[in-house]
Structures are given as structure tokens and as C-alpha cells.
Design a protein around this nucleic acid. Sequence first.
DNA 1: ACTTTTTCTTACCCACGGGTAACATATCGG
DNA 2: CCGATATGTTACCCGTGGGTAAGAAAAAGT
Lengths: 254, 254
Amino acid sequence: MPARVNRPNMDSAPPVPPSSPSPWLPFESRRRARDEKREAVLRAAVQLFLEQGYHRVTLNEVAERLNITKPALYNYFRSKDEILFECWSMGAELVDSVITEINAGGGSGLSKLRKLVHAYTALMATDFGASLVRFDLRDLAERNAAVARAAKKRIDATFRRYIAAGTADGSIKPCDPKLAAFAIAGALNWIGHWYQRDGELSPTEIADEFTVRLTEGLATESRQQITKKTPRAPQRRNSTRGTIGKKRTGGGTG
Amino acid sequence: MPARVNRPNMDSAPPVPPSSPSPWLPFESRRRARDEKREAVLRAAVQLFLEQGYHRVTLNEVAERLNITKPALYNYFRSKDEILFECWSMGAELVDSVITEINAGGGSGLSKLRKLVHAYTALMATDFGASLVRFDLRDLAERNAAVARAAKKRIDATFRRYIAAGTADGSIKPCDPKLAAFAIAGALNWIGHWYQRDGELSPTEIADEFTVRLTEGLATESRQQITKKTPRAPQRRNSTRGTIGKKRTGGGTG
DNA sequence: ACTTTTTCTTACCCACGGGTAACATATCGG
DNA sequence: CCGATATGTTACCCGTGGGTAAGAAAAAGT
């Protein structure tokens, strides 16, 4: 019988009785080994997709970079566009956890907005983060595209919510939250298009500057205390492996 | 003998002796008819490319929308990616003429920057304008890609120059022109990704708001006179014909 | 050691779409 | 009205690359 394609996210408890000690660990370690390979595929894929663009990357290339062959990929993914989606999802999860963390903390609307700007900037400098804005959702299967659209909408809503909260609590000048959010998110998203690892600007430099630059016009007092806690992207090991990475020329506004 | 593919931009003076009155006019009118068809192809193409994405659009579709067949397109263009490039160039020309006009006029660095923001916003709401930021330059032949990169660089340099000029003449606070330009251009470029004709926001609304929003943080006085001359995109007939235009859902930050 | 399951390879299929060849038909100058 | 030149059509080629079938090789289980 041909490969039986594991569904992703089988997070349910293992159906094995927890009394037996031996079969559980191997099972888990096996599953983990599998997940690690899966993630390795995603890391290779996202890098190539960003480097060359989704349509110019062949599955043969992805496989080659992992020292396997194309059909082997189909043990982990059902199709090329599913790989794209999973890369995208990795980025979305990062944003979601950032938002969750900010929501958990307190502070004014402005302070939350600044935290978001800061963390989001850092995200845009990672592969999975950049994939959020550089991948074309129309390449996804409709089902996945719908999921992605929903996630984007949540993120957008968060920006607007923070801004609206800021105008409500007085930390942000009255303004149209929709357009203000578009402006800020636009500037941030665009980072994913021009940032290059080997460029002059470090992610923290960009983050610090943008945090000021994008909110100074909104703040009620000309220079409020900017709480900078340098929030690292939480609970993810080494989300972007230091690999070769081609030139990525450019460095312009577009 | 098979089709002899006219080179674009044969702007050199007609080799016909200017004494003869009759052969010159027909020649001109013929050339113009040809150019009009060429441009019609570009309008159809840019629309489809934006709608569905370059790689999902086939030349058959482009041709079909013009009531011709695919090989007919090759009378006007050498390849699909050349069509893409020409679409992109149309946008670039629009920006260039905007910049030329602003450069011709006077005003402080801040005032020039605001003019640029205003005009650029309006451009992003047009098909050819959006193509500037939504097309992937890696789809172009290397020669054309180089041209496009150069054009982008010029645009970016203009943003920075206006900002630098502003800090020099005192109309703009001291800041890093590079990062400030990135922030502003990012917010503007992103418009090309979320703007939709049938949305709530009109181009002028967006332009007016962004002109304020993106520069208020930079201005030295909290509220300078904002010269709003509503500069129309110059000397181009009806750059975007009111055509069908599919849904374009979304409306989020990404 | 033998079976079973998972993982991976070799070899292939085939739809799609850019591009071309050869031929038909307007269009135009004269 | 006629040859020449554009302009367009029908029919085809073929490289590319996603995806699959069948079976080898490696682990795991017993």
C-alpha cells in the first residue's frame, strides 16, 4: 500500500495506554524525528521560496538541498502548495504568539501598539516572518487560502484594536484607526521586501527606529516613555538556521 | 517570411523625406493605431496579472480578453515577460513624471515630500501604479530587471533626497533619511496590495490622510501648512479604463 | 532472523503553457 | 486592381515540473 500521508497537527493524546513505558517513548521520539524532518523541509523550502520565488522553485530543488529526492517530500506533504501554506503558517504562529503575549501584558493602547511594532519588525527579518508578506495567497488551495485570510484579518484587527484603545485611553491622538493601521502595517510589512541579512541595518536597529518613527505622529505627548523590553520571539528553538543565503541585491524602497 | 516583430520605441524620425505630405500622415496614423493596440494589450495584461497573478495568467487568456488569439500578441511583444516589463514600465513612467514635476516646482523638503506622498498614493490606486509593487522583478529577463532595479533605486533616492533636503532646510526633524524613507515608501507601496476600487476608501481620501499621517511625525512644527494642489497624473489620457474588475476580496493589512 | 512498517529511490506519466511555422486575410501605397 | 506589407489564424512542438507507481532499503517490532 502506498504512503499513507500523515495528517499534520495530530496533537491528540497518544492512544497507547500510558502504563507501558517502552512503546511510548519510541513512539514519541519517532514522531519527533518525523516532525523535525518535516520542519527541515519547511526551512529549506521557505528559504528557496524567498530567494527565487515560489514558481521558480521546483520540488526537485527543495529535495536536493535536503539530500533526498522529490518523491520523498510526499511523505511529509501532500502537494507543493501545502508546503507553501505550512511555511506561511509558521510565520502566522509567530505573530499570533507575539499578539497573545502583548494582550496578556498591560499598558496603554499606545504602549501595546509600540510593542507590536517592535516585535513585528523583528519578525519581518526572519524567513518565516517574511513569508507572511511575500507569498501570494492565491497559490494556496482555496481551503488554506481561507485560513490565511482569516489570520491576516485577525492581525489587522489587532493593529486597529490597539489604535482604537489608544484613542480611547488618551494615549493616541484621534485618528482613523483603519488608515493608521494600514500605514503602520504597510511600513512594517514592507520590511519583509527590503530587509537583507547582510545589509547595513540590523533588525534591532530597524525595530527601534520604526517603533519611534511609526508612532510618534500618533502619540498625544510628543515624546512618551517608550517601554522597550526587546521581546524575543517566544518558545521557538532556532527558527532560522544560518544557511548559505544568496545575494539578495537591491536595498531600495521597492 | 514570418512576422518581423517590431521593436518597441522606434522613436527615431521617420526615414521618409518630409517634403512628401501624404505618405507621412498615413505612416503616423498607422504607427499610432499600432501603438494603441499595443497599449490595449498592456491594459488587458496588467489587469489580469494583478487579478490572478503573473504565473496564473496565460497568454491565451490575455488574447482572449482582446478577442484575438495568442500568436497575435507576438506581433507586439517578444515574450510574456516583456509584456510584464512593459506594464511595469508604464507605472515607472508615471512615477518619473510625478517626480519631474515636483522637482520642477519649489518648496521645502517637507513640502516636496508631501507632494510626493500625495501623488504616489494616487498612483498606487491605478493598475499600472500597483504593478510597480506587485510584480516580481525576478520574472523579468535580466536585462529588463536591471532597468527596473535602477528605476526603483531612483525613486528610493528621491524619497531620501527630499527628506535630507527637509532636514537641511529645517522643515523636517533630524532623522535617518534611509529608514524614514523606508517607512514612508513601505506604507505607500503597501497600498498597492490592499487598495480595491470598490472599497470604502477613495484614492483621494487615502492620499489626503496618508499625506498627513506619514509626515506629521517628521515635521518640525506640529502642524505646518499642507499645500494640497491635488496634482493629477500628468499627460496621460485615461490610464486605466473602467473595466469589469473582479472582486478582490480582503481588505486587511496584508 | 523474519516480518511489518516506514522511508526513500528510480522511472515514469501527462497537463500545461510559452513559443513557432505555415498559411490566410486585411490594409495600403501606387 | 495589384503586389507588398502588416496582421491575424490554425495547428503544432516541446520543455518543464507537479505528481504517481512500484519496488528497494532501512528501521522497528517480535
